[in-house]
């Protein structure tokens, strides 16, 4: 009788251990950013075999031959040019204390867009380029920019322009908080929200190249490489913050505040899975 009880207990313990091991293995499987990035890029190159990997940064223009021709013509007099000029001036203009943006960034802020966002291990947070710009302003006694457009779009446009062609090089340090931020961003990307019950992936993974009314949906791969963008729909420039908040509104979800943790983590995830693709911003979209 005792032997039977022992045997049963051993069986239960073994089953529990196996279950635990399976869970741990599942957790390890789900936290593998390099494998995620590889699968992510493969998904899009398999779905659009005619589009070169580096062309995904051109969004809807890479999906449609007619649009691609229009875009090439538009690039001769690009609509983001005014913002680019304004950004160049703002970037060079000294603050009241005599310092400038160049004093806040590595390599004086030139050709560094591809390294943002990064995970700051001191603060345990994702730092996007937009956050770094406002921190630079505030630490020098200046007023921060609005996160969504105007001056922020101009300065990020200039910084992206100086980084054109450089491949995204987002790093995840060996810090469980960085991995958690990455995972949180991934969760946000795939989670359905709003009355329309859409996730980011509903449009940008399931339906890139398809139309929503007259718009061609962009692929998620390389979607941030072109930021900030001039959107004809907006009639002006917009930052990554503007893109995220307006996407939320479009699916009837109340947007979070620009640069809330979820948005920073989402940018971290989306940039990481586009590692290797060149910065193409500032961009123009319909």
């Amino acid at each position: 009788m005792r032997a039977t009880i022992r045997l049963a207990a051993t069986g239960v313990t073994l089953a529990m251990l196996l279950l635990g091991a399976a869970r741990a293995s599942h957790a390890a499987d789900s936290l593998n950013p390099p494998a995620d990035a590889k699968a992510f890029q493969k998904f899009f190159t398999d779905k659009f075999p005619k589009v070169k990997l580096e062309d995904f940064v051109n969004g809807p223009y890479s999906m449609d031959e007619g649009l691609y021709k229009q875009w090439k013509e538009k690039e001769e007099f690009p609509p983001y040019e005014f913002a680019l000029d304004a950004g160049r001036d703002l970037f060079a203009k000294p603050f009241k204390n005599g310092k400038s943006f160049a004093d806040c960034f590595p390599n004086k802020g030139i050709g560094i867009r591809q390294n943002y966002p990064y995970f700051d291990e001191k603060r345990g947070k994702v730092i996007t380029l937009e956050v770094a710009i406002n921190e630079c302003l505030e630490s020098n006694g200046e007023k921060p920019f609005s996160y969504t457009k105007d001056d922020m779009a101009s300065v990020t446009a200039y910084m992206a322009f100086t980084s054109r062609g450089k491949p995204f090089d987002i790093k995840i340090p060996n810090d469980p908080r960085a991995l958690a931020a990455y995972e949180n961003g991934k969760k946000y990307f795939y989670t359905r929200r709003g009355q329309l019950n859409f996730s980011c992936a509903t449009c940008h993974v399931q339906s890139p190249g398809d139309h929503i009314r007259a718009e061609v949906l962009a692929p998620a791969l390389g979607i941030l490489n072109a930021m900030p963008i001039y959107r004809s729909e907006w009639g002006g420039m917009g930052t990554i913050s503007r893109r995220f908040t307006s996407c939320n509104s479009q699916v009837r979800a109340v947007p979070l505040k620009p640069q809330d943790d979820e948005y920073r983590d989402l940018e971290y995830y989306l940039s990481y899975v586009s590692n290797g693709l060149p910065i193409s911003g500032p961009g123009a979209r319909p």
Binding site: A39, F43, K186, Y190, T191, R192, R193, Q195, A201
Partner: peptide
């Protein structure tokens, strides 16, 4: 009713998002 539907959506998506993930 709308608010309760959004709560349901959040609860349901807590794990359901994984089904959408590219693997």
């Amino acid at each position: 009713a709308l608010a309760k539907a959004s709560i349901f959506q959040s609860t349901e998506q807590k794990d359901a998002w994984k089904a959408m993930e590219i693997k």
